[in-house]
Nucleic acid binder design. Structure first.
Lengths: 252, 252
DNA sequence: ACCTGAACACCGTTCAAGT
DNA sequence: ACCTGAACACCGTTCAAGT
């Protein structure tokens, strides 16, 4: 039977899905379970979502909605970019199960318009626009990696005797100088400074396009490369990899 | 019936599992499918493995076996550590589906004895042992994040007109200065240099244990500014150090 | 000890049928 | 248009039974 006002709202579905994921982990999320908790039949959800992945992505977007508007203050970009990165990390840490889904759907990135205005501000503050993508993507990658790594089991090396055979390892542990948080900030800061450094040895403006082959890294002479990076680019190397499309389900 | 020589070897199972994962993705790996390809009954696998996760981890270890022995040459650690990191990235890129399993089981790390000897060499080469974990974990995290991010769908912004509304975004794309590979090396190098920098402002040896440890980072910040992220692994630099512009900290 | 078929308790998804 | 029960084609895992 059909009620005049729909029983199901996409929003509500995503909220409950997110609750299940946060409470019991993403493996506990099944269509039937989600539907039961919504007081609804599982099949009904397919009138509102394409498939389960769609629901997970919806939950993920919900989880990240708080950090999807970047703070772009009037401070130096090195400062607010670091702070934004820390916010992203904090948000991802609250829902680490969702990271793969966010990556799959490219949903980690801000919307195009936010990116555009962010890039505008970066350029205004003196960063060569040609480094904006690198800055954003590199820090995003770092955050993803750090948060994913935090989830390691880590439950094997508790034996005190384990260290006896490995004195350096023990000392590395006991004399550890940086906490995880400090290490994270150090990494972010290093990347930011690295980009800033690259900026200094780059042409101020796209005036002399070819002139800017400076060395940024030892093994990496920077050749200005403009092949549209969007989707078609990424070159053959990554294209090969990303050619794994939606898996066919009942193909067998 | 039981043959005198077991039909199933753990090794063979992991190899076939890895083949399925690489050929069709991890979602295509099911016990029944794996068993059929092995010419065996699915239930039989449970005499050799605890569960499916165990099999996946076995496949993952197989995939990483080539990079699990670090190259520790006599070069400066900044050099061989970068190279090892690149090797790890290359290995993970060949089996990105396995990264979550590797993380879950903490299998990405080297064995304890390898870590111990790696740390020994690092200390021998002058790195304060208290920074060894941070160095290793930070770069590992970065690699994980970069490889995971490479898997993004990325298929929505193909419309040429999309960029019309976002001029900065377009220019950021067309004037992009660093390729993905270059950006990766830049990030690694920046982290390595950042650690090296932290090492310089640290006590050489655990002499005054509590003396310097505290002020290394204060929740957000790591020691004095490092403006000179050296381009090359060889550091040497230092010249520009004083030119560091008054940098504000992201205090909160 | 090792392998098997059958069964258990689940899945995601589709679809004709109801209103 | 929206919801439902039933069914389809799968899952991972267990277990008594075979040898």
């Amino acid at each position: 039977m059909r009620p005049k006002v729909p029983l199901i709202s996409k929003r509500k579905v995503c909220e409950v899905a997110l609750a299940i994921i946060d409470e019991e982990g993403i493996d506990a999320l099944s269509i039937r379970r989600l539907a039961r908790r919504l007081g609804v039949n599982g099949a009904s959800l397919y009138h509102h979502f394409e498939n389960k992945e769609d629901i997970v992505v919806g939950a993920a977007l919900l989880a990240l909605s708080s950090v999807r508007t970047p703070e772009t203050s009037s401070e130096d970009w090195r400062v607010w970019f670091l702070r934004n990165t820390q916010h992203l990390k904090a948000a991802l840490e609250q829902h680490p199960d969702l990271i793969p889904a966010l990556i799959r759907r490219n949903a980690l990135r801000l919307g195009l318009s936010e990116i555009d205005s962010t890039f505008a501000l970066l350029e205004e503050q003196g960063l060569p626009i040609g480094l904006a993508w690198t800055l954003m993507e590199t820090l995003e990658s770092f955050v993803i990696g750090v948060v994913m790594r935090e989830r390691t089991a880590d439950g094997a090396d508790d034996a005190e005797e384990t260290y006896d055979a490995f004195p350096h390892l023990r000392r590395a542990t006991t004399e550890r100088m940086l906490s995880n948080d400090e290490a994270f900030v150090l990494g972010c800061q290093a990347i930011i400074d690295g980009i800033a450094q690259a900026a200094e040895s780059a042409p101020r403006r796209p005036a002399a396009k070819r002139a800017g082959a400076k060395k940024v890294g030892r093994a990496t002479t920077v050749t200005p490369r403009r092949a549209s990076v969007s989707n078609t680019a990424k070159t053959a190397k990554t294209a090969k990899r990303s050619s794994a499309p939606a898996r066919r389900r009942a193909a067998g």
